[in-house]
Design a protein around this nucleic acid. Structure first.
Lengths: 167, 167
DNA sequence: AGTTTAAGTCAGCTTTGTTGACATTCCAAG
DNA sequence: CTTGGAATGTCAACAAAGCTGACTTAAACT
């Protein structure tokens, strides 16, 4: 059992198995809380988490192509397509054939699509804001650092892209 | 955008939409990284995330009953049962009739069940340890605080239970 | 004796992932 | 110019893992 043996001049962390396991369980429980509010809203519309993710990232990058979205979401195109199809049928997403390259489809939220996105974002932001307020500014910075360090390399690059585009 | 502004007193935080959205996306990407390694291992055994969760918590609380596990995992018994049945058939989990109350089944990992758990835990811990080391001790404390604040009330109580039992 | 509780089963449905096959479009080599 | 391959997106079918509802069995409680 890895005794967290301190060490190094720099990091000097006692990381026992118990601490790591607590971190793992915290991720599990927190992620459930994180998705709970949107899930309730989505259920009212007959949507699932996959719809939420699509709507979120289309809102984030209007005009993105299906392929772009695939790379961000990390699912197969067939899986994304099903979700996209229902959103388009319901008039929440618009798919425009590319002008330069007609193979591509550019995706946009419609008026009611934006309304849905706003409703979901507000619910999720409220919980995040609450958690941030309770934990305080220093904790928030640490939270972000650890999460970023936990991503796969490719996701980290994507995240940095979105995060700085956000400022 | 979003100047973090540190007015103290309590926790005055300026939380812009961009900051909150970055937090939301960080959770999304980090959770994917968090589950990526175990997913690869599970696939080799023909298991899924549901099996991982069951094995994790049975290891955590040996002798726990089916009902306990249901409360922790937050799924229906039909759903859990399917997973549990395959784990028992494969000889990774043992189900013992309760001595005090014979209606109950107490769950334990077998030798090979513990081996699987250890393999999964090691992979997930490695990434967590790495993230913790890179982010540093203060960041880790913040990470834990924010995650705990993000859980639903009931999950938070459960987590505190597991976390302190861990120390 | 009658009710409640714990566990499990059967059936059927939904969401969201997967592969495989296929149509359309673009582009570049011949 | 044509043609063959790569890129993009769609359709079909299947699997994992959630869900609800109805029910059984055994044990415990009152």
């Amino acid at each position: 059992m890895s005794q967290g043996h301190h060490s190094r001049g720099e990091t000097l962390l006692f990381l026992t198995d118990a601490q790591l396991r607590a971190g793992i369980e915290a991720m599990f429980f927190a992620y459930r809380g994180f998705t709970a509010d949107p899930d309730r809203i989505l259920a009212r519309y007959g949507y699932g988490r996959a719809h939420h993710r699509a709507v979120h990232f289309i809102n984030r990058w209007p005009g993105t192509t299906v392929n772009n979205l695939l790379a961000i979401l990390g699912v197969t195109k067939q899986s994304l397509n099903r979700v996209l199809r229902t959103l388009i049928e319901d008039g929440r997403v618009e798919s425009r054939v590319g002008e330069r390259d007609k193979r591509e489809r550019h995706l946009y939220l419609t008026e009611i699509g934006r309304a849905l996105e706003a409703e979901l974002a507000e619910a999720q932001s409220a919980r995040m804001r609450d958690a941030f307020r309770r934990a305080g500014p220093d904790a928030v910075a640490g939270f972000r650092e650890v999460l970023e360090a936990m991503m796969e390399e490719e996701q980290r690059r994507q995240f940095r892209g979105t995060a700085e585009a956000a400022e």
